[in-house]
Design a protein around this nucleic acid. Structure first.
Length: 642
RNA sequence: GCCCGGGUGGCGAAACCGGCAGACGCAACGGACUUAAAAUCCGUUUCCGCGAAAGUGGAGUGCGGGUUCAAGUCCCGCCCCGGGCACCA
């Protein structure tokens, strides 16, 4: 919605209509969805779990009944029942049943206007507005008679759709009551403060309860528990938990979607389509009218059917399902895609699930990834599967950004894959995207960066092609051979561990570039056998990033493909080992020198060598060494006084 | 407002467990090759001093404090940017 209008049709205003729709009761799983977030802690990104926690939005509080003069009760939900002696009015959501029942005439029109207005307003820019219903309600704790209002900021879908307003201790209630001249009564004082004479702003923190009968003097937290228990004991309320997550409305007035398999019979009511008649298929003879009804409604053959219960004339449900329904379990079907008897064979699911590694954009953090978690639990409860969660690990990749914004057609900052391939080839695109940033982060697309990747591929290719003739020339190993082989094995180790753990391919590629730079520097002194060994491994290491050119190089070197079926290069720790350990010498934590020593050199020896170092001496300069920090094969820090 | 990320050279970034800040690349500049240009190869490039140079001293990871022999990394308090939710009682 944009400015109260459809985001795709900017002159078509959005209307609020009441419709009968199908819902899936995801709220029944709210607690488990929240609890099991703990099981995902090690494998899912924190931010996704944080978003889901917020989305589910569990609030602990109490429900309390206020007595109306009409005889009905208004049930309110509050997280702060300890403030109830400060409640100065009751506020109903405009859609509340009691409003429909008791607010009539001109005021009913005002309420209707309020509902319509809010439907067209975006979040955040709603001015608080209220209408006094003329009714009064009695606070069951202190017997106070307070006015009943309707206000636009009270939501029908949350809690009980009605609140008690405590302006002294809630910012929103304060704003509302100040605007309409409703009294403000403070009942909570700060732990180290007093109740204010006049309230100039709400105090929303926990504190000590005052002017609240038998609960006066209690801490807020204790009062909450005791007062909820008291309400329950006296039959006018109870402790209650409310969730922000709502039931999942799945009805869509669209043709494209899975038909909702229900039949409406005048005699029997709503009757599910029997299993034997599933699946219900979409008709092919439909007209798209744009009238707001499902196109299926106009398809007589589809709509008219017989009731499975009584056999009388009946009509099919014409709404189709939200596509999120299908995406909630498509990955289960992957395990048994040709099964025509059932969604899948549970034995196959038991073998494959849960998914070891799921990958997707962070934009799915809430909807798809909550729905699919819910769907898994639901299928488990009806005995189809036995896993509690769909995916053990989740990886959320970043977006490609260009000129400071997500690539999109409307912004005109799209780099088409075709144009990129024509200019540089697919290998370049892959290499650049992997090199520009770690994959979980957004990456900036720059032409010069892509050119750099292209140049680098050329650099490798040129070296391989011009070396072909030397590969099978025998020779005695040289120092250059040894140095490059060492770098090769260090690189194998680095890239292998990036694949195994963090997927930070940008650092893999950087390490690979260092290796190539070393190969260039040592080219003339290298012998045939070492060149063959190194270049074959180079091609295998690069193949996951730039498969096409690597296939080409692999065959140019006289090997048979495909390159991606070759074994990954083996790491040899012995070959990778440096000749000696480079020790960093610090004086008072500042770098002063470096020395290369044999591995495992003792603290005493290193200390002696450090003190003898000509670059270190001036900074020690006869001052007493009070402490020596030694990290074997790595660092020595001389702490001197003065 | 609440909840997550993030802030490091001219730019993208690296530094994974507290131990050499700036790997690798881009851009820029210089050199080689060339009749010339492109391409390629080699080199320089955080800032401020001193030095003809090789060097060498200091400062430096958003800001202010703290812990530590040692802080981009840990702790406390701020600022800014991005994302999510948003009158959720």
């Amino acid at each position: 919605m944009v400015d109260g209008c459809c985001w795709r049709h900017e002159t078509v205003p959005v209307e609020q209509k009441e419709m009968t729709q199908w819902f899936i009761k995801i709220t029944a799983y709210a607690d488990e969805l929240l609890q099991d977030i703990e099981k995902l802690q090690s494998g899912w990104p924190d931010r996704v779990l944080a978003m889901q926690t917020n989305w589910i939005g569990r609030s602990e509080g109490a429900e309390v009944d206020f007595q109306l003069e009409t005889g009905e009760k208004v049930r309110v939900f509050t997280t702060r029942v300890d403030t109830i002696y400060g409640a100065t009015c009751v506020i109903l959501a405009p859609e509340h049943d009691l409003v429909k029942q008791y607010v009539t005439g001109e005021k009913a029109a005002e309420v209707k206007a309020m509902i319509d207005k809010r439907a067209t307003q975006g979040p955040g820019d709603v001015e608080k507005e209220g209408i006094f219903t003329g009714m009064y309600a009695v606070n069951p704790f202190n017997g106070a008679r307070v006015p009943v209002w309707v206000a636009n900021f009270v939501l029908t879908g949350y809690g009980t759709g009605a609140i008690m307003a405590v302006p002294a201790h809630d910012e929103r209630d304060f704003e509302f009551c100040t605007k309409y001249g409703i009294p403000i009564v403070p009942v909570i004082r700060p732990v180290d403060g007093v109740l204010p004479e006049t309230v100039t702003e709400s105090f929303g923190d926990y504190g000590v309860v005052e002017n609240s009968g038998q609960w006066s003097g209690l801490a807020s937290g204790d009062a909450r528990k005791q007062m909820a228990a008291f309400a329950q004991a006296n039959g006018f309320g109870e402790a209650a938990i409310t969730f922000r997550i709502k039931d999942w409305g799945i009805s869509r007035q669209r043709y494209w979607g899975t038909p909702i398999p229900m039949i409406h019979c005048a005699a029997c009511g709503v009757v599910p389509v029997p299993d034997a008649q599933l699946p219900v298929l979409l008709p092919s003879n439909v007209q798209f009218t744009g009238t707001g009804q499902s196109p299926l409604a106009a398809s007589e053959d589809f709509v008219n059917t017989t009731c499975p219960k009584c056999g009388g004339a009946a009509k099919r449900e014409c709404d189709t399902m939200d596509t999120f329904v299908d995406s909630s379990w498509y990955f289960y079907r992957y395990c048994d895609a040709h099964n025509s008897e059932a969604p899948f064979d549970p034995k196959k699911i038991a073998y494959w699930f849960p998914i070891d590694q799921y990958i997707g954009g962070v934009e799915h953090a809430i909807l798809h990834l909550i729905y699919s978690r819910f769907w898994t639990k639901m299928m488990r409860d009806i005995g189809l599967i036995s896993n509690d969660e769909p995916a053990a690990r989740l990886f959320t990749q970043g977006m490609v950004i260009k000129d400071g914004a997500k690539m999109s057609k409307s912004k005109g900052n799209v780099v088409s894959a075709d144009a990129m391939m024509d200019e540089f080839g697919a290998d370049t695109g892959r290499l650049f995207e992997l090199f520009a940033a770690p994959p979980e982060r957004d990456l900036d697309w720059t032409t010069s960066g892509a050119e750099g990747a292209y140049r680098f591929i050329g650099r490798v290719f040129r070296f391989v092609t011009r070396s072909i003739d030397r590969l099978d020339v025998p020779g005695e190993p040289t120092e250059a051979d040894r140095k490059v082989l060492r770098k090769l094995h260090q690189t194998i180790d680095k890239i292998t561990s990036d694949f195994d753990s963090r997927w930070h391919f940008n650092t893999s590629i950087a390490a690979f570039m260092e290796l190539v730079n070393d190969i260039y520097a040592n080219e003339a002194q290298m012998t045939g056998p070492a060149l063959r060994e190194v270049l074959e491994k180079v091609v295998l290491l690069l193949a996951p990033f730039t498969p096409y050119v690597c296939e080409e190089m692999w065959e140019l070197m006289g090997r048979t493909g495909p390159v991606f079926k070759q074994a990954w290069p083996e790491f040899n720790a012995e070959l990778a080992k440096e000749d000696g350990a480079e020790i960093v010498v610090q004086v008072n934590g500042k770098l002063r020198s470096r020395m290369t020593v044999p591995f495992g050199t003792s603290k005493e020896d290193v200390e002696r060598m450090a003190l003898a170092d000509e670059k270190v001496a001036p900074f020690v300069d006869g001052k007493p060494v009070v402490k020596v920090i030694f990290v074997p094969d790595k660092l020595v820090n001389l702490v001197v006084k003065g």
